[in-house]
Design a protein around this nucleic acid. Structure first.
Lengths: 231, 231
DNA sequence: ACAACCCTGACATATACTGTCAGGGGTATC
DNA sequence: GATACCCCTGACAGTATATGTCAGGGTTGT
């Protein structure tokens, strides 16, 4: 739907403070360059304050068309640190998304608050599980599968370097201090199993989706602990 | 152009207090009844709070302001993980703020997106620097001081257990894998200094605030690295 | 029961959108 | 003043989308 793409473009432009090239937008939206130019023309016809400059890219006047949303200083700190941490502990994909999300939230702040808190000096860095970017190769596919309730086939190398093949229902992803963990219902074991994301060797969707079944939910997994944890 | 008609419909609904029938809209817009129904469905998909009631007509919640803040699935993942991480790595105060912030953002989502993503199974846990809650005692006062540019007096125990007293200008807080670090301009050393938050023994505000000075900014600190880092 | 609505599906037609190809021209940097 | 990046436009064919028409079903309020 074109309409959604137009809004999406506006979101992108709002999110970044720096100009974006039409080519980047085209790639991200999965359409041709020509289409982006047409979209921009349409947005301008609609009165959106977007401008394109040769050699630079597209930009939008900030504050356009957004409902104000108020965050107090503590909440802002939490959001900044949170998105920093997500970027530090996630893969490139999640990091980019975190940046966009943060920019969006900053953009909806009332002007006086935004100006005061635009560049909060709060940062996060992580070396754990980040040294080798490749060990998070499957993070994005796993997030997707989690959303869609896709059954997955994975080949896994456990901590004793024993390989195995399993069909699993992904139930949750948790980031611990040293690794991302996939909690799942393993059809081979007919029980809950955790897998370190960085030790998954390959991953394919079976094409099947599953429906959450009582007894095989993340909540059921959590209940197996005593005392029960926070989630 | 359909897009303009959709906006036009929203304008009509906003303008009137009383409900408008689809037939009226169809006549005014010069399209068929069926098209209006399809348009309304599209508007609702986009998250516009328009509702149609049999025997009445269409109405819109007043004060509505299109489009609402929209997060794509990746951005939502990043926000959830981010707030989880902030809660996992911060103190109680920051964790609570993270939770509130997340709730606020979820609240502004269009219904159909919110329902789908209300309980994303993405979690974060940390044992690092959390075992002893007390070692983050000064995180919240430091965040406050950072915002307000307060000069601080701290007594510090360095990694060799050497105690010292310093007057510092807090410049940034960074969460690393094993600790929170306060980057500051130390007036004693007349240079930049980093302090582990968990090794600060006491902290008092001097009552003075400072104005950011060229050469004593976080950006200047970052420049002392080669190559310069991300921030 | 009735009138006045909202809402949905099916299907053929018209319209708008899209990618591709082929240009023109501006801006920043060295 | 070359070069690398950009924005921008026209034309055209193929495809996706939107639309009107027809034919229903269902809810609300009187």
């Amino acid at each position: 739907m074109r309409l959604l793409r137009l809004f999406s473009i506006l979101d992108r432009l709002r999110a970044r403070r720096h100009p974006i090239s039409a080519e980047t937008l085209a790639r991200d939206m999965g359409v041709s360059l020509r289409t982006i130019y047409r979209d921009m023309a349409t947005l301008q016809e609609m009165g959106a304050p977007v401008r394109g400059e040769a050699g630079i890219g597209y930009q939008i006047e900030k504050g356009y068309f957004l409902p104000p949303l108020h965050f107090d200083p503590d909440e802002l700190d939490a959001l900044i640190i949170g998105t920093e941490l997500a970027a530090a502990r996630g893969d490139q994909h999640l990091g980019d998304a975190a940046e966009r999300a943060r920019a969006k939230m900053i953009a909806v702040l009332p002007d006086h608050i935004r100006d005061k808190h635009r560049d909060l000096p709060l940062y996060a860095y992580s070396a754990l599980g980040k040294a080798d970017e490749d060990n998070l190769t499957f993070l994005t596919p796993l997030r997707t599968a989690l959303r869609q309730h896709d059954k997955l086939m994975i080949s896994y190398l456990d901590l004793k370097d024993q390989p195995s093949q399993r069909t699993v229902r992904p139930l949750a992803l948790t980031v611990f201090d040293r690794a991302w963990l996939l909690t799942s219902w393993c059809e081979k074991a007919n029980d809950f199993r955790n897998f370190r994301v960085d030790r998954i060797q390959s991953l394919t969707t079976t094409g099947e989706t599953f429906r959450p079944e009582p007894g095989k939910l993340y909540n059921d997994y959590v209940k197996t602990f005593n005392p029960p944890e926070k989630h």
